[in-house]
């Protein structure tokens, strides 16, 4: 194992994070605050409570997930796409590093950033509504697993993308809608029966449900199903990454 290399990639990526701290942190915090103002205040004045918790409090886990998902994908996809784009990937490819180590460095850094961001957003939310987390360990577990899984997903997109449009397309066209429809701002139980069935095909539902359970013990699906699905996504992403490297897909001519 070339730990020095993993460290080098990880540090390099984290340095990029600190350099772009403003965009990385300020914009999600601002948009989260806006969600609170718009959804929490405007809608919350009509829907006062969902399953025993105030509406503002209810939407916190969903908001955190929304940011964590998009940021994981954006960070990880940029992290690997950029060296491809400017050509510095040559050095990674010519270095004595295994693919596993490359993924560990890039995905590790992207996931770290997402986790930090998730916690910052949580703290921001704490300024607007009273928070209490019943199962902090589960909460962290869901946060870490989701960050890692979607950083892996972002890594895949970064390798697949051959232009900046593609890079932005997936988060815009897939992740944001899935998160909005995945119960960030409502409980699936509030939907008509037929839509509830449709919603179960949305993977984000399971992530949010499990995450929300760790806060308030309210969930759309059982904890074991949430965890099972989360782990399945992780395994799927790992398999795809493994295949990419095995086949040299879009990295080596």
């Amino acid at each position: 194992m070339n730990f020095e290399a993993v460290k080098a990639i990880y540090r390099f990526e984290m340095a990029r994070t600190w350099r772009t701290l403003l965009q990385s942190i300020v914009s999600p915090v601002v948009s989260t605050s806006l969600y609170f103002v718009v959804f929490g205040a405007a809608i919350g004045s009509r829907i006062t409570e969902v399953e025993g918790v105030s509406y503002g409090t209810f939407i916190v886990p969903g908001l955190v997930m929304l940011s964590v998902l998009t940021q994981s994908i954006t960070n990880a996809s940029f992290g690997i796409y950029f060296p491809k784009f400017i050509g510095t990937i040559y050095e990674i490819l010519s270095a004595p590093v295994s693919y596993f180590e490359i993924v560990l460095g890039y995905v590790g850094a992207a996931a770290t950033k997402s986790i930090i961001l998730g916690l910052i957003i949580l703290a921001t939310a704490g300024l607007f509504v009273p928070l209490h987390i019943q199962h902090p360990v589960w909460m962290l577990l869901f946060l870490v697993l989701t960050s890692v899984t979607f950083s892996l997903f972002g890594f895949i997109i970064g390798i697949w993308a051959d232009g900046f449009e593609k890079l932005q397309m997936i988060p815009m066209l897939i992740i944001t809608p899935l998160t909005f429809l995945g119960g960030s701002f409502y409980s699936i139980g509030m939907l008509p029966q037929s839509w509830q069935t449709v919603a179960l095909f949305n993977p984000v539902v399971y992530l949010i449900s499990g995450f929300r359970w760790s806060f308030y013990e309210i969930a759309d699906v059982s904890l074991s199903v949430s965890m099972g699905m989360t782990l399945s996504f992780l395994v799927i992403c790992m398999t795809v990454v493994w295949w990419i490297f095995k086949s040299g897909y879009r990295l080596k001519s």
Partner: peptide, 22 residues
């Protein structure tokens, strides 16, 4: 092919780490 916003020292040290050298 260079990382435009890195310093010379950082980019050269990065290479050394990438090649597994302390």
């Amino acid at each position: 092919h260079t990382d435009a916003f890195e310093t010379v020292w950082a980019t050269v040290s990065f290479s050394r780490g990438l090649f597994g050298k302390p």
